[in-house]
Design a protein around this nucleic acid. Structure first.
Length: 723
DNA sequence: TACTATTTAATTTTT
DNA sequence: TTAAATAGTA
């Protein structure tokens, strides 16, 4: 066996990981250290060298994108299509198991997957049904509660209310939610995982089958596993399975949605004798960028400990720019982008990263004015668009008449005279008789409703029946096409004024194309329609399906994880924004913010700019803030402060501190005051400088006093003490 | 039922 | 500020 192609391109640590014997292995892979490469080569090694059958391998990732990439690269490396290879997301694989064993999982064969938008609607409906006072609970809060409990693997009966009436009610809402889902054959994302876990846990035979089949479990982004995902893995591995997990404790940034870095420690306890391999050589960034990242993350107490290094170039110093406000910040970034582009670089090789999405606005305005094409990540994806979800709801109702979620969505869309009153009657009938809305509609239409309402309901029901009949046996795309037109959605959106309606109709057309290019997997025992609907729920599609265009990439640092760019800007590096106000007080929260910072810094390959604004408009209010503490954690020798006007860069002294950029541009600077400066006044007490104007004897400052409110004071009279 | 005024709250995101 | 959700009005 020639192992050259598999091992040749690897460094020692990578090779050690890839050729690890059939024992539990934990690979701690720093940013840019070839994590995916190790996974891909491990798979190839197992199949090609160890003679493991491709069917004996299970590879799990968190995103569809990562799964697709892994499959692609394994195929390329082995130079043959790896069919029957189970590579997918946790949810995708759980879904696959549930479809195969729907009876054992106590699900209807045609169960539907609901996304978080469907979920929140369902919960709101539940509130109405149970007459829950929504001033007591926000539906969002209950959604969080349910998902968090499911992520931890808990059913309502597992939760101890500890005598807390508030908690007791949440638990009861969770229980009611479950009932509604079970009745409608609806499964939310967390439920996929939870059910898949219970399926294996409670079916010794099935568990035995999968344990025998999947000896080798490859796991990507292990630090992001939540409790139920980890439990599922452990169950599947059993005593003889060989888990091979890859992760980076320093890049764990999803604690808030249930991810637990602790699993990295737990893994070593659960699988005694685990081999640990650390990948610390980085192939992405310059030494300067790496050293900065290392220095920042070193401030975290709870780490396994690792230090990235490179044998590459030192690189340019990190440039820090202290902007007046967010406009100035944006201008600065755009100026540098212009230089970059003028030097013949690709726009797509640059990225602007920020902590929260709201920050993109000002940057976008600037980019539009400058005529620089850009792309913002995040936002609604294709299958999440309203019109698409409407069309899918019709299809889902055809597939499963008991899907209340879809029923309510489209029963009166387009409007067909089925108003809130009628729907209320259906709801209460459905509740009283523990049946679906569809059955309730049929029942009350023949008994309780007046003529007009009954007609409307009957017309709706026969429309759905007609759709089901007429599309029976049609090809998927013809089905979709037929339903879109019969439903009246196209006409409905035509009435929308402006471009909005047009776009929506275009999107509906796009849905037909999506159905056309969708190839059902014959191995799945599902109807093509069910499979398409599951696909739509599990893989929400791209944000923008636009053709490739060379443009600047704008995204949050969260969405930047896993990506890399030669030129990176991190904007809004201010205490309160990053680290975010809501995480600052909690040490765990702060450490997670710091890991996010580490992720942000390590996205940069060649050049990194960090900017912060002294004044920033947030929620319509002007705020003053200090530069992020994370900036001060970067050793000064790696930083160069960028000063505007005077085009001179000057290394900083002992620690980073913001300074006014030029005397002429900052009124009052000669008095030693600056925006955000804390001051004390004899009469008014303590306050913060909001504004200054004028020079010399005329210089005035606006001070927001804690007790006395906001006042303009002439500096030469006020006798302010700087604090 | 659709449009308009008012209120409210405001990280991060995948499946 | 602004977007979304709710309440009120035509």
């Amino acid at each position: 066996m020639d192992v050259t192609p598999i091992l040749d391109s690897l460094n020692d640590a990578q090779r050690q990981a890839v050729t690890s014997p059939a024992e539990p292995t934990l690979v701690i892979a720093g940013a840019g250290s070839g994590k995916t490469r190790v996974l891909v080569h491990r798979a190839a090694w197992l199949i090609d060298v160890e003679g493991v059958s491709p069917q004996g391998l299970l590879a799990v990732t968190f995103t569809n994108k990562a799964a697709a990439e892994m499959r692609h690269r394994i195929e390329a490396l082995l130079n043959l299509p790896v069919q029957h290879l189970w590579i997918g997301t946790f949810h995708g694989l759980a879904h696959r198991m549930l479809r195969r064993h729907w009876r054992e999982a106590n699900l209807p064969q045609n169960f539907q997957i609901i996304d978080s938008d469907d979920q929140i609607r369902l919960i709101k409906r539940l509130f109405k049904n149970l007459e829950v006072d929504d001033s007591q609970f926000a539906p969002k809060e209950i959604q969080w509660f349910i998902n968090a409990e499911k992520d931890e693997g808990r059913r309502p009966q597992h939760i101890d209310d500890g005598g807390d009436p508030n908690l007791r009610q949440k638990i009861s809402l969770y229980a009611s939610y479950e009932e509604v889902c079970q009745r409608g054959g609806l499964v939310d994302f967390a439920e996929l995982l939870l059910r898949a876990h219970e399926l294996l846990r409670d079916n010794a035979e099935l568990l035995g089958h999968y344990r025998r089949r999947f000896k080798h479990l490859l796991v990507d982004e292990f630090q992001d596993t939540n409790a139920i995902q980890y439990a599922w893995l452990r169950l599947l591995a059993g005593a003889d399975g060989v888990p091979f997990v890859v992760g980076d404790d320093d890049q764990s940034i999803y604690r808030w949605r249930g991810a637990r870095v602790e699993h990295i420690h737990q893994f070593q306890r659960d699988f005694p004798g685990t081999r640990v391999v650390k990948l610390e050589q980085n192939y992405r960034s310059t030494a300067t960028i790496l050293n900065a990242a290392n220095a920042v993350i070193a401030n975290n107490a709870s780490r396994l400990g690792k230090n990235l290094w490179t044998d590459g170039a030192e690189g340019e110093a990190i440039r820090v720019y202290s902007a007046y406000n967010e406009r100035d910040e944006s201008d600065f970034v755009i100026g540098r982008l212009r230089d970059w582009i003028d030097h013949g670089n690709l726009r797509a090789d640059s990225a602007i990263l920020y902590r929260s999405n709201a920050q993109s606005r000002v940057l976008e305005e600037g980019l539009i004015n400058a005529g620089i094409p850009y792309r913002v990540y995040g936002g609604l994806r294709f299958f999440e668009r309203m019109e698409i979800k409407d069309a899918l709801a019709y299809l889902r109702l055809i597939a499963n008449r008991d899907d209340d979620s879809s029923f309510e969505r489209i029963v009166n869309k387009p409007t067909r005279g089925i108003g809130a009153r009628t729907i209320d009657m259906m709801r209460s009938y459905a509740r009283a008789n523990a049946c679906s809305l569809w059955r309730a509609a049929g029942a009350i239409a023949s008994d309780d409703l007046n003529g007009r309402a009954a007609n409307a309901v009957n017309a709706f029901m026969s429309l759905i029946e007609r759709m089901a009949r007429e599309t029976d046996g049609l090809e998927l795309q013809d089905k979709v096409d037929h339903v879109i037109h019969l439903s009246g959605l196209v006409d409905f959106f035509k009435k929308d004024k402006g471009e909005k309606g047009e776009t929506r109709i275009e999107n509906l057309g796009e849905l037909v194309s999506a159905a056309k290019s969708f190839t059902p997997d014959p191995a799945e025992e599902m109807s093509p329609l069910d499979e398409f609907l599951s696909h739509a729920a599990l893989e929400a599609g791209e944000g923008q399906a636009d053709a490739w265009e060379d443009c600047v990439q704008l995204m949050t640092m969260h969405s930047a994880k896993g990506l890399e760019f030669p030129l990176v800007f991190i904007c809004g590096m201010e205490d309160g924004l990053f680290p975010h106000q809501r995480s600052i007080a909690d040490p765990n929260g702060l450490e997670e913010e710091r890991r996010l910072c580490y992720v942000g810094i390590t996205r940069a390959k060649e050049m990194l700019y960090i900017t912060h604004a002294e004044q920033r408009r947030l929620h319509g209010m002007d705020n003053f803030s200090q530069p992020s503490r994370f900036i001060a954690e970067i050793p000064v020798e790696h930083i160069e402060e960028v000063r505007p006007r005077v085009q001179v860069t000057r290394p900083m002294h002992t620690s980073y501190s913001p300074r006014r950029k030029s005397a002429a541009a900052s009124p009052g600077s000669e008095m030693g005051v600056r925006l955000g400066q804390r001051v004390r006044h004899k009469k008014f007490g303590d306050g913060v400088i909001l504004n200054c104007e004028g020079q010399g004897a005329h210089a005035r400052v606006e001070v927001n006093f804690e007790t006395a409110g906001t006042k303009w004071l002439v500096l030469s009279y006020a006798n302010l003490d700087l604090m």
